[in-house]
Design a binder for these strands. Structure first.
Lengths: 143, 143
DNA sequence: TATACAAATGATAATCATTCTCATTTGCAA
DNA sequence: TTGCAAATGAGAATGATTATCATTTGTATA
């Protein structure tokens, strides 16, 4: 159990709601969670944290570098633990399943494309939208 | 002036609001416009079209293949004329300036990455967020 | 260990982009 | 011209997210 130190070193007070949210990301089998999902999962496990707090905490964790925020299609933000290794995403349009991948060739070519145009890169996002074709894919977008 | 035919062939009635929106995209020096921007530009030029209609028309044009919709950071959708050639985007975080680029190597590697994981690709989006470093860049995000 | 106060929380109102509803208007085929 | 389905516009409704503010909680200090 090292979460409190994570929070401390991020300059955040170690409070109950923050520990619960962090712990949820560390134990959930789903790496990618939206604010609403975090809220519902906490409710379901008996820990009730206000929705406003969930949003606040997620944003703070993002700024502290503990979580990463992604804007997939569909309007809502999705968060995942920042494991320090950059990667891109393939999102299944049918079931919402997300898989990560990394291709150094793509990364290199992106940097080059930006540099050639005089830009200084801050960040980038690459999302592939597809069908996962998995047997368990319910073939229906989950809300 | 060939817009009416464009609409016809897209299966859309040639109405005043639709012609105005299409014409705006064809004449505006800014290729990438949000719904709000389209609405305000039309108002400014004396053509007043309801905001709801702007949203409807943009969505119809997207479905008809006349426009492409992009989800950049910031929550709002941005549209551009579909000139048929696929490309990715570099967005300036300071002034909102957008530049397009295309790299066949990136495209190929994306396809490969998805195929290796058993996915059938529908679409993808690659956005690089950066500073444009242009002399005219106001260094401030425009609303 | 009790206290004190800034920081954090939670309920709820507010906001922002977008979509829906429905009465009115308009393009266009007969 | 006329008729009517399709399109429009004003404003209400929605969904995600943020702001407000009174109450609660961590934690540094006495």
């Amino acid at each position: 159990m090292h979460e409190p130190e994570h929070l401390k070193s991020a300059g955040l007070k170690s409070t109950l709601p923050r520990l619960k949210v962090l712990s949820l990301f560390e134990t959930s089998k789903e790496r990618h969670l939206s604010a609403e999902e975090v809220f519902k999962l906490l409710l379901a496990s008996g820990d009730d944290v206000g929705l406003a707090t969930v949003y606040r905490v997620l944003t703070q964790f993002e700024q502290a570098g503990l979580l990463m925020r992604h804007h997939f299609e569909g309007g809502k933000s999705v968060f995942e633990l920042n494991h320090g290794v950059h990667h891109d995403h393939i999102v299944c349009l049918q079931c919402g399943h997300v898989e990560e991948f990394y291709d150094s060739g793509i990364e290199a070519r992106q940097k080059k494309a930006a540099a050639e145009r005089g830009f200084t890169v801050h960040d980038h996002s690459l999302h592939i939208y597809a069908d996962c074709n998995k047997p368990k894919c319910p073939n229906k977008i989950k809300s």
